[in-house]
C-alpha cells in the first residue's frame, strides 16, 4: 500500500510540473494584461499595481473604432458561416450515408482528398474569382463556400457527420419510408433530430477555425470598418512604433475568451471531435 501511494505521489508530481510548465505562459499573460507597462517584463504572476486601464484603453486603441465594432463584425461573419455550414454539411452527409446513387464512393473519396489539399493551391484563383465577382472586402468569400459544404473544414465536417449517421440504425428510415415519408422528410424529421450532438461539435469547430482564419481575413478584408478581431489586433501591433504590450495582452486575452468559454462548456464535444477524426489544430 505504501509503495502504491508513493508511486501515485510521484506521478502527481510529474504531472503537476508538466501542467505548470504548460500553463505558466497563459497565467502570466492573464496577469500581464492587468499590469502597467513598467512591470511588463517581470515574470511574476501577480501584478503589483493591478489596473484595468489596459482593457479600457485597448478597447479604443484603433483610431475611429472600438473593439465592439470588430467583435460585431467577427460574429456577423461567423454567424453566416456557421448557419450555412450546418445546413449544407448535414444535407450532403445525409446523401452520402443514406442514399444510393452512381459514383457515390468516388465522390466520397474526393471529399476525403480535399481534406488534405493545401489551400495555397486554390488561393490565387479563388481570389481572382471573388475579385471578379466584386466580393473582395465583403464576407461573401467566406459565407458562399461554406454554404456549399466547403470553406474551412467543410469536407471534414461532412466526414464527421457521415461517420455519425452511419451509426444510426437504418430501420428508422425504412419505417418512415413505408409510411410514405420523402427523403427530405427522413433527413429533416428523423436524422436531423438525432444529429444534435455531432452538429454541436461541427458548430464548435467551425466557430474556432473561422475565428482563427487569419490568412483568409487578411486577404479578403481590406477596410478597417470591416476588420475582424484578429486583423484589428495585428493592426495594433503594426501601427504603433513601440507596442503597447499591456493593451495588446488585454485585447488578445478578450479575443480568445469565446474559444475558452466554448472549451469549458463543451469540452466533451471538442475531445470527441478530435478523437473521431482528429483533424487540424
Amino acid at each position: 500500500m505504501n509503495r502504491l501511494t508513493w508511486k501515485s505521489l510521484r506521478r502527481h508530481g510529474l504531472l503537476l510540473v508538466l501542467s505548470l510548465f504548460m500553463i505558466y505562459p497563459v497565467v502570466w499573460w492573464i496577469s500581464a494584461s492587468f499590469k502597467s507597462n513598467e512591470e511588463m517584463s517581470s515574470p511574476g504572476l501577480i501584478p503589483i499595481k493591478a489596473t484595468i486601464n489596459n482593457f479600457i484603453e485597448g478597447w479604443h486603441a484603433v483610431p475611429g473604432f472600438s473593439f465592439t465594432h470588430f467583435y460585431a463584425n467577427t460574429f456577423l461573419l461567423i454567424a453566416g458561416v456557421l448557419f450555412t455550414t450546418l445546413i449544407s454539411c448535414s444535407l450532403v452527409a445525409f446523401g452520402f450515408s443514406r442514399l444510393d446513387f452512381p459514383l457515390r464512393s468516388f465522390w466520397f473519396s474526393i471529399v476525403l482528398m480535399t481534406v488534405m489539399l493545401p489551400n495555397q493551391i486554390t488561393l490565387v484563383p479563388q481570389y481572382a474569382m471573388f475579385n471578379d465577382f466584386g466580393w473582395v472586402n465583403t464576407y461573401l468569400p467566406f459565407i458562399v463556400p461554406h454554404s456549399m459544404a466547403g470553406g474551412i473544414g467543410g469536407a471534414f465536417f461532412i466526414f464527421l457527420l457521415v461517420q455519425f449517421i452511419r451509426g444510426i440504425p437504418s430501420e428508422l428510415d425504412e419505417a418512415a419510408k413505408i409510411d410514405g415519408c420523402s427523403w427530405f422528410g427522413i433527413y429533416f424529421r428523423i436524422i436531423m433530430p438525432l444529429l444534435k450532438a455531432p452538429l454541436v461539435t461541427v458548430a464548435i469547430y467551425c466557430f474556432l477555425w473561422n475565428w482563427d482564419d487569419f490568412l483568409g481575413h487578411l486577404i479578403y478584408i481590406n477596410d478597417v470598418d470591416k476588420y475582424t478581431v484578429g486583423l484589428a489586433l495585428r493592426m495594433m501591433i503594426d501601427t504603433s512604433s513601440t507596442a503597447p504590450w499591456g493593451q495588446l495582452f488585454a485585447m488578445s486575452l478578450v479575443s480568445v475568451l469565446p474559444a475558452v468559454l466554448i472549451f469549458f462548456f463543451a469540452q466533451r464535444h471538442i475531445v470527441e471531435g478530435v478523437a473521431t477524426s482528429g483533424l487540424k489544430g
Binding site: 444535407l91 446523401g95 465522390w107 459544404a149 467543410g154 433527413y187
Partner: peptide, 23 residues
C-alpha cells in the same frame, strides 16, 4: 439499379457545386 440516383445527387449537390466552383 440505383435506389435513389436523383435524390442522392440532389442531396450532395451543394458540395458537388462547391467542389467544382471553388476547388
Amino acid at each position: 439499379r440505383w435506389e435513389s440516383p436523383l435524390a442522392g445527387y440532389l442531396f450532395i449537390s451543394p458540395w458537388l457545386l462547391g467542389f467544382f466552383l471553388f476547388t
